[in-house]
Design a protein around this nucleic acid. Structure first.
Lengths: 221, 221
DNA sequence: CGCCATTTTGAAGGTTTTCAATGTCAGTGG
DNA sequence: CCACTGACATTGAAAACCTTCAAAATGGCG
């Protein structure tokens, strides 16, 4: 667990597909020296809209919510990040959203200077970030699809399926689905009230479409 | 109105900011020869999800809706395109959505080969497309913000404001707001029924937040 | 003028929200 | 060790809102 070992990136369990996996041996060693592992408690705001970008991040474990503020200053959650997810960059020098821990979170923090240096040496990294943005766009559209579903039950079920298929993409089992975030955050993401989400869970359980054990929900059918 | 005149791109009234404006005089002349102006009637599907990308398009006039199909095969509108908007490309060789005319539409159609040729000669075009994707992402998030508003009235008002501020960005007056698309399309975009949208318009008019003259709606206050 | 597509309006029914109360669980201190 | 506390989740009941189905009104176009 030594954060400063010179080859921690080589043995990294998550190894960002859009960045670190683009680097060769030497650059990876170089990154190992400047990348820092940091641990945050739950409910900590890691980065804020408008602040200048100083670092980019990979999630080692724990979960994070990403949100923006609407005109009324209310929080609108636009996504949840899980281990293996990358965040922090989007051109322009300033963060475009807020990121806040939901659970305790361990991050790999990469200084922006080092990142830019690698970008210059290896322009293909830029292409990977372009692809990552396109992927974010398709996630946003999936979100839009869920938001236009007409019943709360459908929205909640789709939400569980979305998290499940994400676990799948990350090479983890489809079941049980680890939701972790509080009902209120799910409600916010789905454009509903927390009571409605709670009732939807109860109905889905009654219909045996899901079964619940505390903070894991298993999709049946 | 000669579509084949060799300098039509030089005098183009919209001149795509993300593409054509990146080209120098010679390349613009070159583009003039291969770019074609085409007119489509209303309710014509111009491009479909999954089909291979053969051209990219700029809208000269008229409006277009962009949609995807959800799991049930229903149409979900994810945006409306106005004159000056660009569409058609997003890496991967295949279109990622459907585009259908709402009104009669005049397009500038650029063959993908010509586009790729310019891309090779002028790599900065790629950066502009990256920026355009980031812009699309922020539009999608604006859409999400509207969808999570809790009343139909708010959604409709926000929708009108969105179109208005887009007119502003395109250098046109904020009022009157040109909606053009049918209630049903607005309803689809907002996750509502067309009757609900119609009632919301009536209420907003009663509250004097807007005033209506057929297909133009003027925002007051 | 009359047709067709679209929009508006009405009324009933269903869903979500709101407000309030109760239930659950983990952590803390007596 | 157990009661207490605070955070979160569930449930209930009434009110508000949206949807559904149906009918009437509007507007463009032949």
């Amino acid at each position: 667990m030594n954060n400063y070992q010179a080859d921690k990136c080589t043995h990294c369990p998550i190894r960002s597909k859009i960045y670190c996996s683009c680097l060769d041996k030497d650059n990876l060693k170089d990154l190992s020296i400047s990348a820092r592992h940091e641990t945050f408690e739950k409910k900590v705001v890691i980065l804020s809209y408008g602040k200048s970008i100083k670092s980019i991040y990979n999630i080692l474990n724990g979960i994070i919510k990403v949100y923006q503020l609407n005109e009324e200053g209310e929080q609108q959650i636009i996504g949840f990040l899980y281990p293996g997810d990358f965040f922090g960059s989007h051109e322009g020098g300033n963060y475009q959203f807020f990121a806040e821990t939901i659970s305790q979170v361990k991050l790999c923090k990469i200084p922006i200077d080092k990142f830019k240096m690698h970008l210059e040496k290896n322009p293909s990294i830029k292409d990977r970030f372009y692809e990552a943005t396109i992927n974010e766009l398709s996630l946003a559209r999936e979100h839009i699809n869920i938001l236009t579903k007409n019943s709360a039950e459908e929205k909640v079920l789709d939400f569980i399926k979305m998290i499940s298929s994400r676990q799948d993409k990350m090479g983890q089992p489809i079941n049980p689905v680890h939701l972790i975030m509080p009902r209120n955050d799910i409600a916010n993401y789905l454009g509903l009230r927390l009571e409605t989400v709670s009732r939807a869970f109860t109905k889905l359980k009654a219909k045996e479409l899901i079964s619940l054990n505390s903070f894991e929900s298993i999709i049946l059918n």
